[in-house]
Nucleic acid binder design. Structure first.
Lengths: 223, 223
DNA sequence: TTTGCAATGTTATTTACTTAACAAAAATAT
DNA sequence: ATATTTTTGTTAAGTAAATAACATTGCAAA
């Protein structure tokens, strides 16, 4: 298998796509297929076949010339690369609509990733089992994160609580954070941070929709 | 102001960052500030001051040398660029946890974007007002999208319904789709599509967390 | 007044990523 | 047998994005 440094040299975008390839491959496997061509994967992911082949080249996987790639093998190889050996435990901080959506959405889907705890400040939620996972008060974060060996925290609290919650996570020794609040947070270098704001995505789509409409008008006006 | 083609030539990443700059600037404005330096914006967004200045150069905004950028002016200029003249109406398809989270999260935050309708197949939701917006059955999508002049659809249905829902949106004449389901969809060229999968993000974070741990172990082992 | 400083604005360079080009291989058709 | 087709795997070229380098400006302090 590829060594540590080779894996780190993989482009970040390739890592993302590997996750997406696996998602698509798992669906194909469910359909009873055993092999798939690069152009088929490409179609699903809205990218080019070359990109797919290049990514697979980078991870050292070879297909067969007329049958394409063995789906089962490829899924396993992607797992070897992006998954950990042991389970990685995840916590959701903020068990509102978004937090609950994530819990439902993740658990049971992946072998090596599991949401094992939720945190909230709402006394009605604390102590309850919500969507199958126990909910704790944020004041217990330090203890629970250590006890359950939680490595990653997903921030789904209201923006006003983002900073405080992220600090608690960091103090509890978390290693990675996904921040879904619209408030950018700061973390030490040893914590991997990914931020995503749905408003930005929507505004971007709105921008290109607007531009397409203006273009349409202009073209029509030109005729 | 910049013309149509100039706006389209802006890098996609710049468009995203403009949205994020505005988000940050609005918070600064609430704090009563009037001016901000590029390095302050940069710090909030975890990027470099040069990047900020370059983006602002691209949109033709100039700050003052010792005071930095006028927050109010910059917010307005970003609005002129990324917002539409008239309101853009948005629909959420799938009023589950994620859909409701989005509704709460968006509405009232932006002048030019508003979620005006939800669609669901659950009879208990149809006809109700959920988080302030009316919920319709998916069979009414065509009518409602046209009546309410809805331009953008946000897909938050279960993966199994993603394809069907996206087809309905397209048939209803939608111009842009944000797909939050884990099932990639296909749309015609004239529909702008943005897909985001939370599992991919989590797996990516898990990968880099794993790599950091392996690195840590290696370093320790080397000592 | 002039020197230094801290900021902006812009061009040049570098890096990261994608796409294109094409050789090689294996199955199939001629 | 030989040519054709289809697909992979890899190197080369091209794009897009980020960073670096640096000129410029205007205020403040000496």
């Amino acid at each position: 298998m590829k060594d540590h440094q080779e894996l780190l040299n993989l482009p970040h975008k390739t890592i993302e796509r590997l996750s997406q390839y696996r998602r698509a491959l798992l669906l194909c496997l469910e359909d009873g297929r055993t092999h798939i061509f690069s152009h088929e994967i490409a179609k699903i992911q809205h990218i080019t076949p070359v990109q797919v082949r290049r990514d697979l080249m980078l991870i050292g996987y070879s297909g067969t010339l007329r049958k394409g790639y063995n789906i089962r093998e490829l899924i396993d190889l992607i797992g070897e690369i992006i998954d950990s050996e042991e389970m990685i435990n995840v916590a959701v901080v903020g068990v509102g609509n978004l937090g609950r959506a994530l819990i439902k959405y993740f658990n049971g889907k992946r072998h090596k990733l599991y949401i094992v705890a939720g945190f909230d400040i709402n006394p009605e939620k604390i102590g309850k089992i919500i969507n199958g996972i126990p909910c704790f008060g944020t004041e217990d974060m330090d203890r629970v994160v250590r006890e359950k060996n939680i490595k990653i925290g997903i921030l789904t609290v209201p923006a006003a609580n983002a900073i405080e919650s992220s600090k608690r996570l960091v103090d509890a020794g978390i290693k990675g954070i996904v921040n879904y609040t619209p408030k950018p947070i700061e973390v030490p270098d040893n914590v991997y941070l990914e931020e995503y704001d749905m408003v930005t995505t929507l505004e971007k789509v709105a921008f290109y929709v607007k531009m397409a409409e203006l273009k349409g008008e202009k073209v029509e006006g030109g005729n």
